[in-house]
Computed example of a mutant assay.
Amino acid sequence: MAAPGATTDWAVGNNIVLVTQQGEEVRGLVFAFDAPSSLVIIKENGAHSGVSNIRVLNTSGVREVVSSVKPERPMDLTLPLVDLERCRKREERALQQAELESARVGEGVTKEAQAIFDALVKTMPTVWRNKSIVVLDSVYVDEPYTPDTCRSDEEHRATRERVKMVLKLERQRLGLLDSCA
Results as ranks from 00 to 15, higher is better:
Pro36Met: 02
Cys87Glu: 15
Leu79Val: 09
Gln96Met: 15
Ser132Tyr: 00
His156Cys: 01
Tyr145Asn: 04
Asp137Tyr: 07
Arg93Phe: 15
Lys122Cys: 05
Glu85His: 13
Phe31Ala: 15
Asn53Asp: 10
Arg160Leu: 09
Asp9Gly: 03
Cys180Ile: 13
Pro36Tyr: 05
Glu91Asp: 15
Gln114His: 11
Phe117Trp: 01
Val141His: 01
Met165Asp: 03
Val26Gly: 00
Leu176Glu: 05
Arg151Met: 02
Ser152Arg: 00
Thr149Gly: 00
Asp148His: 05
Arg55Ser: 05
Ala115Phe: 13
Tyr140Ala: 06
Val40His: 02
Gly175Ala: 03
Gly28Pro: 13
Thr126Leu: 07
Gly5Thr: 09
Ala181Cys: 10
Lys131Ile: 08
Val109Tyr: 14
Ala35Leu: 13
Glu72Tyr: 02
Ala103Pro: 02
Ile133Tyr: 00
Ser38Asn: 15
Arg73Ala: 07
Ser38Ala: 14
Ala103Phe: 15
Ala94Cys: 11
Ala115Ile: 06
Asn58Val: 03
Pro36Lys: 04
Gln96Asp: 10
Thr126Gly: 04
Phe33Thr: 06
Glu64Cys: 04
Glu25Gly: 01
Arg27Ile: 14
Ile54Glu: 05
Leu79Glu: 14
Ile133Val: 10
Leu169Gly: 09
Ala98Ser: 05
Thr159Leu: 11
Pro4Trp: 03
Asp178Thr: 08
Cys150Phe: 00
Val56Glu: 05
Val82Gly: 05
Phe31Met: 12
Ser179Glu: 14
Asp153Asn: 10
Ala181His: 07
Gln22Thr: 13
Pro80Ala: 11
Leu18Gln: 02
Glu25Pro: 02
Val12Lys: 14
Pro71Thr: 08
Val12Trp: 01
